[in-house]
Amino acid sequence: MKLAVLVNEGPYTHQASDTAYLFTRAALEKGHEIFRVFFYHDGVNNGTRLTVPPQDDRNIVKRWTELAEKHKLDLVVCIAAAQRRGILDENEAKRQGKDANNIAPGFRISGLGQLIEAGIQADRLVTFGD
């Protein structure tokens, strides 16, 4: 089946991102297709490569990146939510006149339309949040 995942909270503060990751991994292991993982609200903070969690803890951002690489996942960070919270890719940084970008590998920034499209195209949409 084709599934889509919506992640509405950032890493570490809420368990939502952990649950979403473990759900996504389990769905892939079962042979389902993940049409897209969409990051909204503070969920966009899952897409910064600048996090440095303690070494004896899970690395939530890196874990998403690695899962994306392994399964060619489409990890989409909402542009409007990202702009509010300072998550930028190279293009956005240039466009907004910022001196740096911080998007993690495997993530891309795009519009809210990508979430609606996921709702239309996927057989199921599952939301993780607070």
Binding site: A80, G111, L112, G113, L115, I116, G119, I120
Partner: peptide, 11 residues
């Protein structure tokens, strides 16, 4: 904001 965007998709 999601609801407003969704209007464009004619759902």
């Amino acid at each position: 904001e999601v609801v407003l965007i969704s209007a464009a998709f004619e759902q």
